[in-house]
């Protein structure tokens, strides 16, 4: 039973498909990495999977046991509001809100979950610090902890390592790998093809469609399948210039 399955699905803006004819599925425990050049619609696809956009065409099946309120989402690095007064703890526990429905306050269980996630990501000591004053890596970890608070079975990560230095990047990918080993399914968008090939179990490669101004794109899915098969494919050879580092 797959968590999410796309059958011939298209996503885009104002009825106009930017990514078209997607066919892929995610099973529990999978680690799917979405790769592709800039503007190929990776972030649009993430928004579609999150339900922030409805599919323009085709079908997206989401399994019943897992509904929207159980997806953790790590947004792309935005220019964090520089003067936003929020402590790390306040930011992390806000991940639990989706599961609260209309209930107003956090329960003891919510607080415990927030604490567990902060401890596992080593930011418990920072809990009273102001989010805006943290370093880039600490901010990413805070947002990952928030995503974990919201996640039941699936994490969607949009460029988890963007803006991080090499050490922090390695740590970040290590963390995600650990989470995946613990049974969490992962969908990640990444520019870092080498890291993607090293970590992910499946690859979805999107390509830009040739149509003028990206109007009504079709067949933008260049590859979907296991990582081993991707490495051998011609798509990968074109994308990486034939060089895949270990």
């Amino acid at each position: 039973m797959s968590l999410i399955a796309c059958k011939n699905a298209s996503f885009g803006y104002e009825g106009n498909a930017v990514i078209g004819n997607l066919d892929f599925e995610i099973n529990p425990g999978d680690y799917l990495c979405i790769v592709g050049e800039n503007g190929s619609g990776k972030s649009t696809l993430i928004k579609g999977l999150l339900g922030l956009k409805t599919a323009v065409g085709g079908n997206v099946f989401i399994s019943k046991e897992f509904c929207l309120n159980q997806t953790g989402y790590l947004p792309q690095q935005t220019a964090a509001q520089k003067d936003f007064p929020a402590s790390v703890y306040e930011a992390v526990i806000s991940g639990r809100l989706g599961q609260r429905g209309f209930l107003p306050f956090y329960s003891r269980k919510d607080k415990y979950a927030a604490q567990e996630n902060m401890r596992s990501l080593n930011i418990w000591d920072l809990r009273n610090k102001c989010y805006a004053e943290l370093s880039g890596g600490q901010q990413r970890r805070t947002l990952l902890a928030r995503a974990l608070c919201a996640a039941g079975k699936l994490l969607l990560l949009d460029e988890p390592a963007s803006g991080l230095d090499p050490t922090a990047t390695r740590e970040m990918y290590g963390l995600i790998k650990t989470l995946n080993a613990g049974g969490m399914s992962i969908i990640m968008v990444s520019h870092d093809i080498n890291a993607a090939l090293k970590c992910a179990s499946h690859i979805l490669h999107l390509q830009k469609c040739g149509a003028a101004q990206n109007l009504n794109c079709q067949n933008t899915q260049a590859f979907f399948g296991k990582t081993q098969d991707y490495i051998k494919s011609s798509v990968a050879a074109d994308f990486t210039g034939g060089k895949i580092y270990d």
Partner: peptide, 18 residues
């Protein structure tokens, strides 16, 4: 708590079902 979530990061709040 909801007002905080909507103020801090509206996209995330919407994505998680708020």
């Amino acid at each position: 708590n909801k007002i905080f979530a909507v103020t801090f990061d509206e996209t995330f709040a919407r994505a998680t079902g708020v």
